[in-house]
Each structure stands twice: as structure tokens, then as C-alpha cells.
Write a protein that binds this DNA or RNA. Structure first.
Length: 481
RNA sequence: GCCUCGUUAGCUCAGUCGGUUAGAGCGGCGGACUGUUAAUCCGUAGGUCCAAGGUUCAAGUCCUUGACGAGGCGCCA
């Protein structure tokens, strides 16, 4: 019966016989195996009596090989570890030929590991990262479960293409050769699997709203697909999104919920993943050594995370943000690539970064954006003095280094206002009859948001490319593994 | 999609003004050592210089086109 290395370190008393199984991370001095089984970032030192071990076995203890070891757990004679296993028996499960195994017992670049994503789990960095990713996912479920939310599974395949959240991937079983056509020469989707054109979901929000209108508090946590030709360190074609939706919440409740959730899951990671975070913090420190002084982060990773959990997010309206940006030094000196034109246009990412990283130096929640640059379902605000045009009860949470991590709003619950907005934005009413029904039958104020899970992992892990925080990233031109 | 930079040994990279024999560290392999911690020491092998075309007496080096990668921008979570 094998014991996991994490449990062994935690519970197993000295001078007991144990069996451990894992992968060789180093074999030093023909004598010391550093063994990892993925249960924790620490490796177990297995000591081999090389003078009394079959040379044919010794020969096969190579970096990457899968082995088992049985022996006494003893206090370590060496310095680097508290305990070690003195092996009386070594079993080789899987050989690993170092001449062809792509990984090497040395620092490897993230780019190289990305091209070998099937093997990168075996590195310290990605081991830590995927344990952290798991803990964050678990913490999200725990947060919502503890507050009485219902986890709602919204469909991955959807017929609605009216959400306007981005380009969609078509789902079809129609043949490419001899595709059925109607009299107008268009593809005849009535002959397709679902009898109509379908796509992969870009958001579960509209369906989540239906659930919230009866269950009160729901959230989704599932894969989301965007066929945008986005080539950045913050975008994926397939990513995981969390979308809570709460009946009777207004914009402020919504902000409170989002801020509380972010702080909760980050605290959870700090508490439960200290060792893994240490590995990621050290990695980041090492990476930043090669950068010029002024591009290095001011805080170490865990310090930065604590700063986020310990301080209130800055909340301000879009209109206030525009005023700050207009009067900012970089804008006056023409340092922005896009100067701040005035009220009504969307903020460029350099503007968001200035607010978050230079001006406030903490997470920022921007609210009440111009209606013209936001989605149709956001609640229309009453006109306000000093605000030049119509706004909606939207909120975006901006994080340093990541940009937008949350986008949400109070929803437009008034049928006539919603219909009027849909007409203005040329969104067909018939197709979304089921959505409009929520406003016809027992409508109520409600609010929700979308959290990009990989962006959260990116922030908490200190990684810099979103393709490194999901096991098998999908992006334009790449669907490997 | 646009902009910038890059592609040289298994990995990370150097390669001067275009000049004859393309280098280093790590990794691999062989050996030594045997309480190591990225072990150490000695030795050794390893190259379609991304591809195609062009300029030139001569191209890793210059030019053109393409592929791929990284970063930035746009779209957004």
C-alpha cells in the first residue's frame, strides 16, 4: 500500500516502513533519489544502498522514470530535509530514456514547456500551478455553496447567437461536400443535427438569469468559447468562466459580492497553497531578475495577494475615471498612445493600467459606463448631473497586470426599457423570447457578473501568459494535445 | 487582424565590418568520487545556422517572400 508523499511528511512517524511511488526528479551521487508523486511540491529523498543494489536497477533510475521504493522512514542524516526513506527495495515501473525524453533536469523556458504541454505537469512550476488552479476552483465552489448558491450547468451548445459577446464556433454535423442548401442558396440548417444553426456558448449568463428568477442565487462554472482572433497573453479561445446571478441584487450588492468572492478565493489560496505559492513566487522573482529595474513588480507575489485581500477595491464611475485620466500627467504630456478624447469612448488598456497600476495602485471597480459601449441587457441609469450621456449599471473590475478580470452589471429588468434597447441594437426579439419572458412574468431587479477563471489563476500564480495557466490552451492556430 | 522583435547543438544563448575551421553554459554519453541537494571533477559526442529565392569572388551575417514563436495593440473574461 503506497503512501502519498504529502501524507508521509504530515503524518507518518519515524522508524516505520513505508512504500512510496512516483517519478525521479534527480539521482545524485548514485545514491540519492529525489522522488515526486505530485501530492505536494516537496520531493522525498530516497536513499539507495548502491553497493548492495542490483546494478541493472541502478542503471534504470533516470530522471523522469516511474519507480516505487519500500523502506524505513528515518530522520535524515543530510541537511536539506527532515526525513528520508532508506530503500530496501526499488521497483522500476516505467523507464525514461534521457537521450530522448524532452525534459531535462534544469531550468526550461516556459515557451519550450508550452510546446511540450503534455509533459510540463512534471515540472515544479506546473505542478505548483495546477495544484493552485485546483484549489482556486474548489474555493469558488465552496464560496458559493457556503452562501446558498445553486450551481447551474448551462448548455455548452447553444442556438442563440444574439448575445453579442464575441465570434462563435459553429457546431454542425452537416457535410462540407454537398452541404444542403435552401432555395436562396443558403446553408439549410433545418437539416442539421438540431434542426437549426448552433454554436458553442460564449456565455451562460442569459440562461443563468432564468435560474436566478426562481432559485434566487445561482452560479455557473463551465467552459466558454470565443472564436476571436485574439493573440494576447490574456485571451484563450476556450476558457472557464464563473457567472453568478442573484435575484434582487443591485449594482452595489453585485460589487460587494464580486469583491468578497475574489478576496475569499485569494485568501483560500494563501492559506492552503503556501508551499506552491512559494515556488511560484520564487519563479517570478527569478524571471524578473532579467528585467530592467523599473519593470519589476514592487511587491513579491504573496505580498501582492495579501495587499489585495487586505484593502478595499477602489470604486469609481466611468465618468470620474475619465476626469482623472484627462488630468493625468501622461495624458497632459502626450505619453498615452491614445490620448483621452473625452466622454463616451471605451478606455484603452493603457488607460486602465494607469488607473490600476499608477494612480490607485490597487484593484479598481469602474461603474456606470456609457450605454453605447455596453451590452443590451445592462440596466439603464437615470440621467445624472455632470454625466454627459446615458449610462448603464455596469461594473468592470480591473486588476494590476491582468486588466479586466470581472465584467458584470445590474440587469435591465423593465420589459419596455429592455425591448427598446434591443431594438436600438438590432437584436431580434423573437429569438430571445424566453429571455424576455423573465421580464414578462414576475420580473425583479437582479445582477450578476462573469469572472474569467484563467485570469484569476494568472493573477494569483504570478504567471504572465494565460496559455501557461490552463493545461492545454486553445488559441488561434493551435489545438495541440 | 495590425505593429515590433526573434528563429544557430537536446535546452538557453553568443557569433565583430560579409572572409575560409560556427562557439559557450547546461543537458546527454563514458569514467572518477560516494551523505548528495541544480552534487562535484575529468573526458567525449553532438550543427539542413527556420524555409525558398536573390545580391556577392564569398552569406549564419545583406535583400525579398513565406512559415513558426514571443511581446505589444484591437476584441474581451
Amino acid at each position: 500500500m503506497r503512501i502519498k508523499i504529502a501524507d508521509l511528511f504530515r503524518t507518518e512517524p519515524i522508524n516505520t516502513e513505508v512504500t512510496v511511488k512516483g517519478w525521479v526528479r534527480a539521482f545524485r551521487n548514485n545514491q540519492f533519489i529525489a522522488l515526486s508523486d505530485g501530492s505536494c511540491p516537496q520531493q522525498l529523498q530516497v536513499v539507495v544502498d548502491f553497493e548492495n543494489t542490483d546494478p541493472a536497477i541502478l542503471e534504470r533510475i533516470k530522471y523522469g522514470a516511474a519507480i516505487g521504493a519500500r523502506g524505513m522512514l528515518l530522520e535524515s542524516q543530510g541537511k536539506g530535509q527532515r526525513v528520508e526513506v532508506k530503500a530496501s527495495e526499488i521497483t522500476i515501473y516505467g523507464d525514461c530514456n534521457p537521450e530522448v525524453f524532452p525534459l531535462q533536469p534544469k531550468k526550461q523556458s516556459l515557451e519550450f514547456l508550452r510546446e511540450n504541454a503534455h509533459l510540463r505537469f512534471r515540472t515544479n512550476t506546473f505542478g505548483a500551478l495546477f495544484r493552485l488552479r485546483h484549489a482556486l476552483a474548489f474555493a469558488i465552489h465552496k464560496f458559493f455553496n457556503d452562501r446558498g448558491f445553486v450551481y447551474l450547468h448551462t448548455p455548452v451548445i447553444t442556438a442563440s447567437d444574439a448575445e453579442g459577446a464575441g465570434e462563435m464556433f459553429r457546431v454542425t454535423t452537416l457535410p462540407f461536400e454537398g452541404t444542403p442548401r435552401n432555395e436562396q442558396g443558403e446553408v439549410d440548417f433545418s437539416q442539421d443535427f438540431f434542426g437549426r444553426a448552433t454554436n458553442l456558448t460564449v456565455s451562460g449568463q442569459l440562461e443563468a438569469e432564468l435560474g436566478a428568477m426562481a432559485l434566487g442565487e445561482v452560479y455557473t462554472f463551465g467552459p466558454t468559447f470565443r472564436a476571436e482572433n485574439s493573440n494576447t497573453t490574456r485571451h484563450l479561445a476556450e476558457f472557464w468562466m464563473i457567472e453568478p446571478e442573484v435575484a434582487f441584487n443591485d449594482l452595489h450588492d453585485n460589487m460587494d459580492l464580486a469583491e468578497e468572492m475574489l478576496k475569499y478565493v485569494i485568501s483560500y489560496a494563501l492559506e492552503h497553497c503556501a508551499d506552491d505559492l512559494k515556488i511560484l513566487e520564487d519563479r517570478l522573482l527569478e524571471e524578473e531578475k532579467s528585467k530592467p529595474q523599473d519593470q519589476r513588480s514592487e511587491m513579491a507575489l504573496t505580498e501582492k495577494l495579501r495587499f489585495v485581500t487586505d484593502n478595499a477595491f477602489e470604486r469609481l464611475t466611468y465618468t470620474e475615471a475619465i476626469n482623472i485620466l484627462k488630468n493625468s500627467n501622461p495624458n497632459k504630456k502626450g505619453k498615452f498612445q491614445y490620448s483621452v478624447e473625452g466622454w463616451g469612448t471605451d478606455l484603452q488598456s493603457e488607460h486602465e493600467r494607469y488607473l490600476v497600476e499608477k494612480h490607485f495602485k490597487k484593484p479598481v471597480i469602474l461603474t456606470n459606463y456609457p450605454a453605447a459601449i455596453k451590452a443590451f441587457y445592462m440596466r439603464q441609469d437615470e440621467p445624472q448631473e455632470g454625466v454627459p450621456g446615458p449610462t448603464v449599471s455596469a461594473m468592470d473590475i480591473l486588476f494590476p497586470g491582468i486588466g479586466e478580470i470581472v465584467g458584470g452589471s445590474q440587469r435591465e429588468e423593465r420589459l419596455s426599457r429592455l425591448e427598446q434597447r434591443m431594438t436600438e441594437m438590432h437584436i431580434p426579439h423573437e429569438e430571445l423570447y424566453w429571455y424576455l419572458d423573465t421580464r414578462r412574468f414576475g420580473t425583479c431587479p437582479h445582477a450578476g457578473f462573469g469572472l474569467g477563471f484563467e485570469r484569476l489563476v494568472l493573477f494569483v500564480s504570478g504567471m504572465t501568459n494565460i496559455r501557461d495557466v490552463i493545461a492545454f490552451p486553445r488559441f488561434p492556430g493551435n489545438a495541440d494535445f
